[in-house]
């Protein structure tokens, strides 16, 4: 029989998991609205405007529409795999958040209990995130294969080749950060980025790992299948890519996965390179006491999400051979060079 403290811990974990999952599950609603609004304003349009004030209820209407759509399984498809793959793609996108630290500890009023703002602080943090995040590619590959449609197959194969190619550069660019922090735990990585350089610049890894950050950003864009690397869903040649045969909620799950992937890479960039929940050093002490650290974290993540949306409506798409050239011939040697330089400077 486990003691009371363990039971309280487990209950706390379950509460945290439910809260985090529900927030992540509904996060794509505001994000789709935001993305369409940003697209509209960049292209000198208004974007969604009809449903609710400034179209804020549009994603809700879209969700209700998707809910009432027929769930079609093509007769040629591998039925079991076809129905399973959206869930296989979606679950890892959520599971990654089991170790993401959103902020420092907070004390709950009245009961005076300290609660840490992460579900679990694993000692293998970053490795877990990269490993679980990589499983999403199975869902996409299975979806493309099980559809038994030519477009879906090409989309799925393109997606898997692209994701495995850039995963290497992505992982190598994280190694530099690990070398500085001497730890794989995301909480420790954030803690090492406290303070300031020369009193002005924040002590963030971006200033120690500029090359690593650029490699990370490019690889993350490719990993999330976003422009300029969105070849798996290149409308001009592949219709919709791997999810061309999906409809209703299963299609929505693939979209959810994509938006969560974008949020995940934003969160990871903030934690690894931009100091996590640490505030910039020039913020006065009184203001720092007023603003909880989690707001700095959310603010930084929001900047990154805006950045990714901005890129999508600014850049054209690469060709597939260019994509592979960038991945294998430029990013891979550069990321190894980054590890070499970091190692030489550290020892």
């Amino acid at each position: 029989m486990p003691d009371v403290n363990t039971l309280i811990e487990v209950a706390l974990i379950i509460v945290k998991v439910v809260i985090v999952s529900m927030i992540l599950f509904s996060l794509p609603l505001p994000l789709t609205w935001l993305e369409r609004k940003i697209a509209g304003h960049i292209q000198l349009r208004l974007g969604p405007f009809r449903v609710g004030p400034h179209g804020v209820l549009q994603p809700l209407a879209d969700m209700i529409k998707l809910m009432f759509k027929e769930d079609i399984t093509p007769y040629k498809a591998d039925k079991w795999l076809f129905r399973l793959s959206p869930i296989v793609a979606m679950v890892p996108a959520f599971a990654v958040y089991a170790t993401i630290p959103f902020g420092n500890t907070v004390t709950v009023p009245f009961i005076n209990k300290e609660i840490s703002l992460h579900i679990a602080d694993m000692n293998v943090g970053i490795l877990y995130v990269l490993a679980i995040g990589g499983i999403t590619v199975y869902g996409i590959m299975l979806g493309g294969w099980a559809s038994n449609s030519k477009y879906a197959l090409l989309g799925g194969i393109r997606a898997s080749a692209q994701m495995v190619s850039y995963e290497i550069a992505l992982t190598f660019s994280c190694v530099g950060v690990v070398m500085i922090a001497n730890s794989l735990s995301l909480v420790d990585i954030v803690h090492t980025q406290k303070g300031a350089i020369l009193g002005i610049l924040p002590n963030w890894n971006i200033f120690y790992q500029p090359l690593g950050f650029i490699i990370f950003l490019i690889a993350a864009l490719a990993e999330t299948n976003r422009i300029p690397f969105d070849l798996p869903e290149d409308e001009g040649t592949l219709a919709a890519g791997y999810h061309v045969e999906y409809s209703g909620m299963r299609f929505a799950f693939f979209m959810l996965t994509e938006y969560l992937a974008m949020v995940t890479v934003s969160v990871l960039s903030v934690i690894l390179f931009f100091g996590g929940w640490n505030s910039p050093p020039l913020v006065p002490e009184t203001l720092n006491n007023l603003i909880p650290p989690i707001f700095w974290f959310i603010g930084k993540v929001a900047v990154f999400i805006y950045f990714f949306m901005w890129l999508r409506f600014t850049l054209p798409r690469y060709r597939y051979d260019q994509l592979m050239t960038i991945g294998w011939k430029i990013l891979l040697p550069l990321s190894l060079l980054n590890i070499l330089i970091t190692g030489l400077l550290l020892i």
Partner: peptide, 17 residues
């Protein structure tokens, strides 16, 4: 306790889906 959450979150998301 640091790995139990993985199981819980996977279970909860599968249930939700």
């Amino acid at each position: 306790l640091s790995y139990l959450p993985v199981l819980i979150i996977i279970g909860f998301v599968v249930f939700l889906a």
